[in-house]
Write a protein that binds this DNA or RNA. Structure first.
Lengths: 193, 193
DNA sequence: GCATATACGGAGCATTGTTCCGTTTAACAA
DNA sequence: TTGTTAAACGGAACAATGCTCCGTATATGC
């Protein structure tokens, strides 16, 4: 109840450095496909003890989430930029393709999604919100411009897009994903049906 | 090279019974959300030893796959039936909705997909083929009838659909998924764009 | 009944996630 | 600089779980 507000020390520099090291190592490992990498190994590669890893990330999921969140945040930040550069529908299309590109380039997102969405769901809560806001603004603009039907739920598009990331295996995958983007957009236009 | 073909004994009845018991228990557990259930626990619930479980299913994934495959096979079998009962596009729509229903009712598929698609990929190989064949026949029919554009890749639709299963968390999920089905179909029609 | 292929069960090993706590060190004040 | 202390470190030890191994039990076919 005592609402004390002590002057807190500035966070220790080594702490921040180690945290970043860990994130970097984890991200690299995931990207290369080592999704199941033991945490000891992550710690070792980052040059820290296992205890340090656990202080920064209370459990495995927390680590994965941190990597995942950073990537998705960056993706979300692209939305307003695209919105400023293109007309509504094209901005959305560009963003969706960007999403696909991210998945293609860094397999971080896909594997991470696999392990986590089924799990706590708490993870998805935050990052989901961020992404949701991103698509939402883009879709809203398209609807406001009269290009999209008013009953289009941005989340629907996000769902479909996320699905693509699951099947990121087979060849010709990327092209297929972009084709899907077009199908989704065409299916959402006000001119259709 | 010796192409011997011995007369083999008929499989022991207790073996088959146990196998079915294990599948049943696993399926139930997965459906209830206990995706991470320890294998010992599965064995115990099925009333068998852990050794027995491992003889039937060499590893965890094999067990999940077995459950998963059975479910998806059933789903695939519905395709020809629907095709016989409805005109092409409606048959496809009905099947896609069925897919969504399956996921909604039995959470088996979604968690299983999550854990596995990212993993070996060998699993997906079989069941994927079965599903692929199912959508393929339905989409081909729609294209042949001139209802769908010729460049529609059945796999694209499957990908999007699978994605839905990932986000099976939030409320209003099912309605949203069905809406997505409509978007996909609209976006694939030959009249559009 | 008898022989034997087949299946069973569970102890035990290996790996990996997680906790705990004594030691070290960066930040701040004097 | 130096002393104090909160913050961070490292890794031994514990716990949970996947998986193996092998002696025992029991259908199956004669």
């Amino acid at each position: 109840m005592t609402d004390v507000k002590k002057t807190r020390r500035r966070p220790r520099s080594d702490g921040q450095r180690n945290r970043e090291q860990l994130l970097e190592v984890a991200k690299t490992a995931f990207t290369v496909g080592e999704v199941d990498i033991p945490l000891d190994e992550v710690a070792r590669r980052a040059g820290v003890g296992i205890g340090t890893l656990y202080r920064h990330f209370p459990n495995r999921d927390a680590l994965i989430e941190a990597v995942y969140r950073a990537e998705l945040d960056r993706l979300a930040e692209a939305a307003p930029v695209l919105a400023a550069q293109h007309p509504p529908v094209e901005a959305l299309r560009a963003w969706m393709r960007l999403f696909v590109d991210y998945i293609a380039a860094k397999q971080v997102i896909a594997p991470a999604l696999n392990g986590l969405v089924g799990g706590t769901g708490a993870l998805y809560a935050h990052s989901g919100d961020v992404l949701k806001a991103a698509v939402n603004s883009l879709v809203s603009a398209a609807i406001a411009a009269g290009e999209f039907r008013a009953d289009i739920d941005p989340l629907d598009l996000l769902r479909a897009l996320a699905g693509v990331s699951n099947f990121s295996a087979g060849p010709g995958w990327e092209g297929s994903a972009k084709r899907l983007v077009d199908i989704l957009i065409t299916g959402s236009r006000s001119s259709a049906s």
